[in-house]
Design a protein around this nucleic acid. Structure first.
Ligand SMILES: [Mn+2]
Ligand SMILES: [Mn+2]
Ligand SMILES: [Zn+2]
Ligand SMILES: [Zn+2]
Lengths: 156, 156
DNA sequence: TATAATATTGTAATCATTACAAAATTGATA
DNA sequence: TATCAATTTTGTAATGATTACAATATTATA
């Protein structure tokens, strides 16, 4: 919703504010995740940014993503399908994964009443809610996307 | 809590009730998951059952786990660490993952007030809650387990 | 027993991620 | 500006969980 199209300089300041030295790659990755809320995986981020940075290596993408997530600037979203997806908005929200097309959608859930009992001694630093099912496109038979292919998983 | 030590025959009946033909391996895997609520990964299940079934292959473990989870008899628990853990109790509950020792603990959370809005058209078939943090043992300095090794992750 | 269906095994592939060391870049300093 | 150390980026090789697949074994049934 709050997509205000930040400039590279502004993103650099965001990085500095978190103690991350702004580099071209870091700014581009952060910018991409801010402007594309599709929860992409590392490979699809790599493929997109490769057009801008022809010398880009996939290791740099992994390094950058780990740096950003360790500083709490992005979220790692699990899929259970052997890949991690990334999210430029670390604010508390849940995720719905379509098991048909692999799409991940944000879910605004008000779970204020979630009482977490008997965690004797455990320090909770993170809490996330995952939903799974069939998205609207895949559910309603004939659409151009997803459909009945079954193998049309997307990583972006 | 409800650990009633089912016999192999009883477990076989559980399998049949779900349309799964009971085989030695399937019964052993199901029994192990029922009696050991530690959320093991495929490899540690394999290592344990190998003592009973010397001809066991890891592929059979994966086959069995996929069969059981597709029939809703067990749960796949994500860790985000490139491995899946398994749970013999598919009843609704959450999971706490200790990022230090890798232990996964059950969490009984009453999330009845979880309102899931604006899922326009999405059919939700599964809902899970994940917590992350430091467990009691790892948190309180000097214990025999986990501690400050940092590399002491366990898959079982 | 013969036969078909299913389960199990072994091996090779897949694929995301990580390890690691070399090369490039940056930023501060003399 | 030249130097130099710190950091970033790159390329390649490993890792490790999972899957594909075909051969073999088991089971149930006729
Ligand atoms: Mn999100
Ligand atoms: Mn559990
Ligand atoms: Zn879909
Ligand atoms: Zn722990």
């Amino acid at each position: 919703m709050e997509l205000t199209l930040k400039t590279p300089k502004e993103i650099g300041d965001m990085l500095k504010a978190r103690g991350v030295k702004p580099s071209v790659i870091r700014i581009k990755v952060m910018q991409y995740l801010l402007e594309n809320r599709v929860h992409p995986n590392a490979d699809s981020i790599y493929k997109v940014l490769l057009k801008d940075i022809p010398t880009l290596s996939k290791t740099s993408i992994y390094n950058t993503l780990k740096t950003l997530s360790s500083k709490g600037m992005i979220l790692e979203v699990m899929t259970g399908a052997g890949e991690i997806r990334f999210d430029g908005y670390p604010a508390r929200h849940g995720h719905f994964l379509c098991v048909e097309c692999g799409k991940i959608m944000d879910v605004n859930l008000e779970c204020t009443a979630c009482k977490i009992p008997d965690l004797n001694g455990c320090k909770v630093t993170e809490q996330s809610i995952y939903l799974k099912g069939i998205c609207a496109e895949c559910g309603s038979g004939d659409k151009k996307n997803g459909k009945k292919s079954g193998k049309s998983k997307q990583g972006a």
